[in-house]
Design a protein around this nucleic acid. Structure first.
Lengths: 193, 193, 193, 193
DNA sequence: ACGTGCGGGACTACCCGTTCCT
DNA sequence: AGGAACGGGTAGTCCCGCACGT
């Protein structure tokens, strides 16, 4: 969620957008606001993102999906169990929440609800994000001996409890709903392995 | 989610708003659109909801929260187990999704993400909704012998998997993620009784 | 400027309107505001003033014009000189200004500028008000020996310096511009008698 | 009051606003109307006047105040007496009235009454305008030997009779009340030198 | 390639004065 | 007298393009 070292205009715009979309959703954030936060001139936006706000949103989703995906793949690469990976991701998200005082979070869920109906490209980006997470977990569950159907249901539950937990956590301004949800699902995942 | 028999202007406006907010979220829906769907003139909106769009949203959240709450209380009143109540609620929500071709759903989650940062009154309405559901489930779990801490975590997980499942279901245009998530959590709930 | 003893709905509406129009002018005051201040329901307005806001304004102008007119006639009836009457009126107006902390004043001038272009009836009410004051002073000046042409010019100057002084007094939040202007014109009036 | 040669969008908007505000006051003029008269799109308005209608009003007041101020300073620079300068200004204003068929006039008085209560920035602009005129006349009166106190009262009277005369002139649709008022005050000014 | 000033309207939430019907 | 309805109006903001200077 925090920006890297590069501060190219394009990057600054994208990261400003990620923060703002996380905090307030797609429609409540104006491009002017993004530009102001990115300290970028108006013309730059349409230079770097010719398709406008929607394109920024798509890239924001992809960036965030990739970040989470990397956390998952990383865990598995180190031989961690699906349950412990799920808990690790939940802790990662909890860290973002806390850093922003529970003001930012669940960009993808937000986009799913606001923009999916209108914009097929954003719908696709959201679907791809969730699918990527689910598939990674499902694959590992199967690799560890879980029956395919069970693995599918469990991985889907894992994503659902992450997204749902994220929402509850913001509302409660506490990490507990998110972390505890992940922990309980983790037991199911690892216990069934 | 469907309107009753009364067609007072106020009711028509409220139900039109519920449908539209469900479908596209708070900020993407304009008051003009609500009025058009409700077939009501502009002046009526501010007559019945003097505080404008936000007031409509608050009432929409309360209405939906109450509807779900009634489903929960109903189940418990008939002696159902927490797990089976959770599954019943999930099926109820799935029915709404399907009826609207997965275009409407998760109004409360949507409001949580879009409006919570700005509007304390809406934040409170969302918090009250989630709390009401959680408390009802927690109370019943405890009544059936679940330790208090476990009951709290399980009921929170139940709500999280409902909201998360709802989001996945919309994205996948399928009830499976929602229903399966509830079923898996139901096992945890009833198995721990 | 202060209400009398009667508190019929009609009177309450009229006096609420007078205060509000004085403070902010015709277009900046809404009928809802008038009704709220008068503690009257909406339907009452169009019961008592079938021609709406404009009719209230006309009556407000007439009421205020009459009040000032009475001050003038009173002074002359007691044998006062035109100059001293002018000063007395200025002091009266200054009292209103001060009572309202220089927030209310110059309703008629306000109406003249806001509504004269649009509404002939209001134009006529304003014209009648100014004419009534001017004529009374002119008549008395002539009666005291001032040549007709001079009397006309002086009385017109008297009204002009009252209205102009009122404006300056509000802007400066001080009675001085109004009172001093009247005093200087009073010298001209009485010195030329 | 008439526009110059430049027709930059900003200038067109400002001059359209000046005309309309003069004719009907602040609240009775809508921004759409200004834009229509200026033949400018809405985006331009908020590009050139980011603070909206109020900012336009402030600049309109400043423009008009400056125009009158220049007339005053011009007269003094040519060695004219305060009284003759006052009469010259009155004739200038009378010309504007006549040109517009007595439909436009007294923008500053209008703003004073409509917007002073609400908007401190506009109040300040109005106060500055009147102060500028008064101070210029007072300075010259003192330079010609008038005692300070008398000079202050006379210059204030001068402004009051201009604004009051302007109002009467519009109501009567005649320049007489304005010009005669100025002439009578001019005698006081120059006679006391 | 990259930035920028200036439009360009459609759209936003909100409020207006008014009238209808009970 | 009174509450609901009515719809045209308000100021303001939206995302976006176009033409011009680097």
């Amino acid at each position: 969620v925090s920006s890297g070292v590069t501060t190219s205009t394009r990057e600054r715009i994208l990261h400003a957008a990620i923060h703002l979309f996380q905090a307030r959703g797609y429609h409540a954030v104006g491009v002017n606001e993004i530009l102001e936060r990115a300290d970028a001139p108006k013309g730059s936006l349409y230079h770097h993102f010719p398709n406008g706000k929607g394109e920024i949103a798509r890239e924001a989703i992809a960036w965030l999906a990739g970040t989470v995906s990397k956390m998952i793949e990383d865990g598995f690469a180190r031989g961690k169990s699906p349950g412990s990976v799920l808990v690790k991701v939940a802790h990662g998200m909890a860290g973002w929440l806390e850093q922003s005082q529970w003001r930012e979070g669940s960009l993808i869920a937000s986009m799913a609800q606001e923009s999916v109906p209108d914009d097929p490209a954003i719908h696709e980006a959201v679907r791809a994000a969730y699918d990527c997470w689910r598939t990674a977990m499902k694959r590992e569950l199967i690799a560890r001996g879980t029956p395919t159907a069970t693995a599918g249901a469990l991985s889907s539950l894992g994503v659902a409890c992450l997204e749902g937990g994220l929402i509850l956590a913001r509302v409660d301004q506490s990490n507990k709903p998110l972390v505890q949800a992940a922990e309980q699902v983790a037991v199911l995942m690892d216990g069934s392995g």
